[in-house]
């Protein structure tokens, strides 16, 4: 329910663009539609696994579904943050033949190979990431590319500074542009990365001339749960394996800095209210 815009619905802490609801990190939280939104956490599920089910895990799983992956498809995931890692792991469930993860942070790529069984590319180490990906994919490109980076993408200083820093565009579409170039003709791009409502400098001509299908959405989280819970129970996905830091509430400011500046190999921090 979002009077502020005709996009999405209400989201906590997404301010006036999604219904004007404050964030959920508070002493008290109002839960509209409590007869619809929440679900009972199964007995067997650990707290950290349950926590991952609220956002990043279903988003990655959903991102792989939007790619319409068919058996044997080559799937490239831009971004090895929580969303990208889960998307890469989920791509296998849908029958991917190869999964390639792209990032510039080595710790994350290491997890992409260990946790998500993916091949990895560090774009900080190759001259032209699109050419590199083409070389790795028989010069065809990938059948499916998932953008799990979004508005703060790195890799082009001008794009990054004009968007993330100066807000002159709705988001830095570096990963999205790489996706458009790295996917094969007629391929599919699934956009999980979030962008702002203003225009961004996207290479739309290439997307059109390659006949791409671009699918995007905020994740309908609850819809993913029943099936996702089965995957966790069956050991197909082990969501809490990507948690790197547990931050006591008292250290929250420094914890946020660790998280946003990606220090100390931080991939997924968890706030622990009782650990103080």
């Amino acid at each position: 329910m979002n009077p502020n815009a005709t996009a999405v619905g209400g989201i906590y802490g997404y301010s006036h663009t999604t219904g004007g609801y404050d964030g959920g990190q508070a002493e008290l939280v109002r839960v509209p539609f409590a007869d619809v939104g929440p679900t009972i956490i199964p007995e067997w599920m650990s707290d950290e696994d349950a926590l991952m089910c609220t956002d990043a895990l279903p988003t990655g799983y959903f991102g792989a579904q939007l790619g319409d992956i068919a058996e044997g498809d080559v799937v490239t995931v831009f971004g090895a943050g929580p969303v990208g890692l889960y998307a890469a792991a989920s791509a296998w469930l849908m029958g991917a033949g190869r999964v390639i993860v792209v990032d510039h942070l080595d710790d994350r790529l290491e997890l992409a190979s260990r946790f998500a069984h993916a091949e990895t590319v560090n774009f900080g180490q190759v001259d032209d990431v699109v050419v590199h990906l083409k070389q790795q994919t028989d010069h065809l490109g990938s059948d499916v590319v998932i953008d799990a980076v979004g508005a703060e993408a790195d890799g082009n200083l001008l794009q990054h500074v004009t968007s993330a820093k100066l807000k002159l565009q709705g988001g830095s579409p570096i990963a999205l542009n790489w996706a458009i170039d790295a996917v094969r003709k007629g391929g599919t791009i699934s956009v999980m990365g979030a962008y702002g409502p203003m225009f961004s400098a996207v290479k739309f001509g290439d997307a059109m001339n390659k006949g791409l299908t671009i699918r995007a959405n905020q994740c309908p989280v609850k819809r993913q749960w029943p099936r996702l819970f089965e995957h966790i129970r069956n050991g197909h996905l082990k969501p809490s394996e990507i948690v790197t830091h547990r931050i006591p509430l008292d250290d929250i400011a420094e914890g946020y800095h660790l998280f946003s500046a990606k220090l100390d190999g931080c991939i997924k921090p968890v706030v622990v209210p009782t650990a103080a």
């Binding site: 400011a253 420094e254 946020y256 220090l263």
Partner: peptide, 28 residues
């Protein structure tokens, strides 16, 4: 204290940025 900048010391700001092939350090 409220920007969390003191986390730079605690969480190895410098070495975290120097390691590997990070490209975001140019705009930090």
């Amino acid at each position: 204290t409220q920007t969390g900048i003191l986390g730079e010391r605690r969480y190895h700001g410098l070495s975290s940025r120097r390691r590997g092939h990070r490209v975001d350090t140019v705009h930090h």
